[in-house]
């Protein structure tokens, strides 16, 4: 809605799509990505428990993905429209993980009483 009112008055002049990112940003991002990759490998050699290790690995992967989306894919500084569409898939995906609830709670039935 917000976007609509914005774009309609200034017809087709949403700025942002054509901005040029300086190469230094790309290189910095690249270095951080490499560091994070080393970190995620290093983390697997420490024992934080199954859940802990999994959480760390996924947290680092998510961070890396965010960096790629924000800098390599130039979403940071883009129009709100681009940001919205960049996020919508990642936001919807967790809906599907509601399926996990099914698997996690299947064994609960015998342990509680309804009568």
């Amino acid at each position: 809605m917000e976007h609509g009112s914005h774009s309609s008055e200034i017809a087709y002049t949403d700025s942002g799509a054509a901005h040029i990112t300086p190469p230094s940003t790309y290189f910095k991002t690249y270095v951080i990505l490499l560091v994070l990759m080393v970190a995620t490998i290093a983390a697997t050699f420490r024992d934080f428990g199954t859940v802990g290790n999994n959480a760390i690995a996924m947290a680092i992967a998510t961070t890396k993905a965010t960096l790629v989306v924000a800098y390599f894919m130039q979403v940071k500084g883009s129009s709100r429209l681009t940001i919205m569409w960049a996020l919508i898939g990642f936001v919807t995906l967790p809906f599907m993980w509601a399926t996990m609830v099914d698997y996690l709670t299947r064994d609960w039935i015998p342990h509680i009483g309804w009568q």
Binding site: T44, N53, N54, A57, K64
Partner: peptide
Amino acid sequence: FGLYWHFVDIVWIFLFPLFYLIPGKR
């Protein structure tokens, strides 16, 4: 095409820890 290629990269960013790393080498 760049957007596509970065997306391919992102998929691998998740595949790598999921298959090769987690939960830890102990």
